[in-house]
Simulated assay, not measured.
Amino acid sequence: MIMSDFPSKEKALGMYKKMYEIRKYEESIYYLFLEGIMPGTIHQSTGEEASAVGMLYDLSHEDWMASTHRPAGHDIAKGISVKAMMCEMFGKAEGCCGGKGGAMHTGDISVGAMVANAIVGGNLPIAAGVALAFKMQKKNNVVVCFFGDGASNEGSYHETMNVAGLWKLPVIFVCENNLYSATTSISLTCLQENVAADRAAIYGIPSEVVDGNDVLAVNEAATRAIARARAGEGPTILELKTYRHGGHSRNDACGYRPKEEEAEWFAKDPVVLFRKKILEHGVITEEELQKEEAAIEQEIEDAVEYAKQAPFPANEDALINVFKEDDE
């Protein structure tokens, strides 16, 4: 990228701060679970921050997003506060889903973040349905739908791609290809190297393979795909090559991953690389940046303390949002 192509200071710094916020939130969650302070389980997106921020940074709250069982980065990038996320993780009433969702079911429709779907590939037809609604209502909004490499082998994936391509739905399908479906290398389950992009032509959908650890490359691809969708030209499949720093879930020690592979990908840490890039472009000084980072770290510490003290849902709240037939 040449100097003239670099984003404005406001956008570059804004994207970095959001990436850093996601990273520090995930780190905080990790230690809270490790110490036994927080209940449940987690599927973290540490190392995939560029994917979430690059794709979602330019969307409005009227544009919707569908996430997976690994939703924290997507939700924070879409606009859910770390306080609401942290309260949800502690099962508190002020959580983004009222304390009922936990780590795999966060979301907030008010910012366009559909509640995450933990079924592999389960969010794909839902995202297509929302996109169809936008099209039928003649709205100029789009849907961004994330899925993992493993979901590209699900029946729901192929059915959704077929319909989305046929009906030219305003949806961007984003494959976060982190090389592993849970603990299994994607090379053992798919013949194609680019598991989503190489099969896109079957459905008449254009595709791109993007460096998923480069937030600017992701954002540029997102800009093109979003413009196509808004113009009525239909969906795009973006395959972002990235790598999760941790295991599939918190009990996964990653013994199946070659150490050389891990070292290669950890050296391409998206947060570290973008931090270096904004300093090189004179967006901000090191001292100023450290102050911004410290403020984010304090925000997350405050969110943890707030969530610990926040009230649990009332017992009767268990009946809210549950289908109940009329007694008559």
Rank of each mutant, 00 (worst) to 15 (best):
residue 327 D to M: 14
residue 115 V to I: 10
residue 11 K to C: 10
residue 209 V to L: 07
residue 137 Q to Y: 13
residue 13 L to G: 00
residue 159 E to T: 07
residue 153 N to M: 10
residue 231 A to I: 03
residue 318 A to Q: 11
residue 234 G to T: 00
residue 26 E to W: 03
residue 323 F to A: 12
residue 99 G to Q: 01
residue 163 V to M: 15
residue 276 K to I: 02
residue 126 I to P: 05
residue 263 A to Y: 01
residue 8 S to R: 06
residue 283 V to I: 10
residue 25 Y to L: 12
residue 49 E to G: 05
residue 43 H to M: 06
residue 163 V to E: 07
residue 217 A to R: 13
residue 94 E to G: 03
residue 141 N to F: 14
residue 243 Y to G: 11
residue 163 V to T: 14
residue 28 S to K: 14
residue 145 C to H: 08
residue 292 E to H: 15
residue 149 D to C: 09
residue 177 N to L: 02
residue 280 E to W: 04
residue 40 G to S: 04
residue 104 M to Y: 05
residue 123 N to P: 00
residue 158 H to L: 14
residue 108 D to V: 02
residue 203 Y to S: 12
residue 20 Y to P: 01
residue 264 E to M: 14
residue 93 A to L: 09
residue 56 L to V: 02
residue 197 A to Q: 00
residue 165 G to T: 09
residue 293 E to R: 11
residue 152 S to C: 14
residue 76 I to P: 01
residue 116 A to C: 05
residue 197 A to F: 03
residue 66 A to C: 14
residue 134 F to Q: 10
residue 263 A to E: 15
residue 13 L to E: 03
residue 87 C to S: 07
residue 70 R to Q: 03
residue 237 I to L: 10
residue 245 H to N: 09
residue 62 E to H: 13
residue 325 E to I: 12
residue 300 I to L: 01
residue 254 C to M: 14
residue 138 K to M: 09
residue 262 E to D: 12
residue 321 N to I: 00
residue 95 G to I: 05
residue 253 A to S: 13
residue 172 I to L: 12
residue 308 K to R: 15
residue 10 E to D: 06
residue 323 F to S: 06
residue 104 M to N: 12
residue 110 S to D: 13
residue 12 A to H: 01
residue 79 G to D: 00
residue 297 E to K: 14
residue 157 Y to T: 07
residue 57 Y to W: 15
residue 73 G to Q: 04
residue 229 A to R: 04
residue 56 L to M: 13
residue 246 G to F: 10
residue 123 N to Y: 00
residue 134 F to Y: 13
residue 212 G to S: 11
residue 123 N to F: 06
residue 132 L to C: 02
residue 156 S to C: 07
residue 44 Q to L: 15
residue 156 S to T: 12
residue 180 Y to L: 12
residue 218 V to Y: 06
residue 288 E to M: 08
residue 209 V to D: 06
residue 171 V to N: 03
residue 217 A to S: 15
residue 111 V to M: 01
residue 16 Y to K: 08
residue 287 E to F: 06
residue 143 V to N: 08
residue 136 M to Y: 09
residue 278 I to Y: 09
residue 2 I to K: 15
residue 140 N to E: 15
residue 53 V to C: 04
residue 253 A to H: 12
residue 252 D to Y: 13
residue 244 R to A: 08
residue 5 D to L: 14
residue 37 I to G: 08
residue 89 M to Q: 13
residue 166 L to Q: 09
residue 175 C to D: 02
residue 171 V to L: 05
residue 316 E to M: 09
residue 305 E to V: 09
residue 139 K to E: 15
